[in-house]
Design a protein around this nucleic acid. Structure first.
Lengths: 318, 318
DNA sequence: ATGGCTTATACTTATCCTGAGCATAACCTA
DNA sequence: TAGGTTATGCTCAGGATAAGTATAAGCCAT
């Protein structure tokens, strides 16, 4: 973007680009968060954007529904990235990638194409704190990030690098903040600790575990995970990932799978009740260990009743 | 988007499009929220996207800084819209509009071009509730929305329309939710109560006050306002709109200008203190009515100290 | 200089929300 | 029937919030 605010008269052919849609499709199965992948789990589903549909959103929805054979519950736009020419394409047309987050259920996929579901923690092993901080954090990430910080040219820069690492990864008894998925990925990228970062330079030194993806798909995935982890806290979107009936523990496990950390059982249940997000179906879960649990369903009515907002300002009544 | 997930071999020329950047630039002056406009206050600043810069964001930043002559504090991407061909362009190239939200200060603008600052409530007069619900809500909007609801073909649809209106506009002693800016705009659009909606059909019946904009710029503006109103509640972004030193009341007035409603003075001040977002400069405000207030400055350190997140899950400590 | 106006700032109170833990219930299996 | 497992009810303390009262510190007109 440059030049005067009004449209310039540059011929359209000179500024022609292409647009791709990239989808982060999420499901939770057996307490594990999954994403839909192609290319042998090395890429997110993507395709050229076509102007057949009324909007980008409906275009994505149609495509996903054709793929999975069932209506896509929730879709939201994530981010638009600019790619400065593809690898090996030379100076050919540039492109933008418009990415989306979509929530589905795995069991309804009519897998015809090369699509698979992959666990999202395969790509971000340091993000799963459900059984405490993963050991690779202390064993690998901490020392390597410290080394990276130390390698900065000035003392001030060294401190700044280490502080950023400490904040995003929760070092030095800071709290782990599960929402900082993207910041953590970008820090590791900057520290050249992941394959995508050293792909061109070929400077593969000591890397960090975690499956890579083509282009910047892992960055897009990180964006999607971060968005979803933030969203489940103030919008009832988890239910898009649940079957029609579920127990409160199943619901809790799904939330924990997404957040990557455990929640307090009794308090979680109290929250669900007081927000009236669920209602009993009357049925009882069968074939379980321990005391059988009541089955619940999502109260779709809440979507119509309230416009669920979060006030954090001390608004006055007058 | 259609076809197989892998890239199709459609020649790039066949799917070439153009991309534009559109900016929602916000400032607050004298307690009034302003946006930068061009074309006699009828459009948001926009221009063709060029691939000179590393990212979309840096491209926008460079452009805005050239325009306003001062560094742009905060920038975030808003949304990417697809336009199905321009008005009068016929079947010529399609385009996408990538929109951004940016926060600045008005007084630093080196106005050379045709840019102006316009009050954002000129475009959305129903959004300003600082002096109570604006009278046009009860006088104009309510009856017209009711008429629109009544005009639905079936009784069920009528109920549904009215309920949506009631929720988004806070009718029937529902709470006013200042974050639903976009939903309200889209409802009015759907009800054909605003110029943009009847532009093509020419079916200009009873419209509603509020200055229109070209294309879907007012929709983009609504998106930006909604985003900002939500953001000020959990990220310290108001400070980007403030001078270096300010009184707590000035800060409060800015928040109120954005939120479109009043906040409780004493509680607001307590919030600021306990979150340690500001610190006293030692100086005292001069030339004021009433008791002089202490001057404060934003503690930039907080950005480095914490990663300000909001937990709303009952996380467990173990 | 004084009373009245305006804004700043301190303090109080009741209520609600949250984190955490204890206790009991209901099922299964050995 | 004891012991494991999950479900569910209840309590309790501390902190955050909403709302209001009270006092301080300037200015201005009289």
């Amino acid at each position: 973007m440059a030049g005067p605010p009004r449209k310039t008269k540059t011929p359209d052919s000179a500024r022609a680009i292409t647009a791709d849609l990239v989808a982060v499709l999420v499901a939770v199965t057996d307490g594990q968060p999954k994403i839909m992948t192609i290319a042998n789990a090395g890429a997110l589903p993507s395709g050229p954007f076509e102007f057949k549909h009324r909007s980008l959103q409906s275009g994505l929805r149609a495509w996903v529904e054709a793929q999975t054979g069932h209506p896509l519950g929730y879709v939201e736009q994530l981010y638009t990235f600019a790619d400065r020419g593809r690898t090996g394409d030379g100076p050919s047309p540039h492109s933008v990638s418009i990415s989306y987050l979509g929530l589905t259920r795995e069991d309804q996929v009519a897998d015809g194409a090369s699509a698979h579901w992959s666990g999202w923690y395969d790509y971000f092993p340091w993000e799963d704190h459900r059984e405490g901080p993963p050991s690779l954090l202390a064993k690998l990430l901490t020392p390597r990030l410290r080394a990276w910080a130390k390698s900065a040219p000035s003392a001030a820069l060294q401190r700044e690098r280490w502080q950023r690492a400490a904040i995003t990864f929760g070092f030095e008894d800071r709290e782990w903040n599960e929402e900082l998925v993207l910041q953590r990925y970008e820090l590791l990228f900057e520290a050249a600790l992941i394959p995508e970062a050293v792909r061109e330079s070929g400077n593969a030194g000591t890397l960090v575990p975690g499956r890579p993806m083509t282009a910047d798909h892992r960055r897009i995935l990180a964006t999607g995970i971060a968005r979803l982890r933030a969203k489940i806290k103030y919008r009832p979107v988890v239910f898009e990932l649940m079957p029609a009936e579920f127990t409160l523990l199943q619901l809790q496990r799904s939330v924990e799978a997404l957040a990557g950390r455990l929640v307090h059982k009794q308090n979680f249940r109290r929250l669900m009740e007081q927000q009236q997000l669920v209602e009993e179906t009357g049925a009882i879960a069968a074939d379980t260990v321990g005391r059988p649990a009541k089955l619940f369903r999502f109260r779709h009515a809440v979507l119509a009743e309230r416009a669920v907002a979060g006030t954090k300002l001390p608004l006055s009544r007058t």
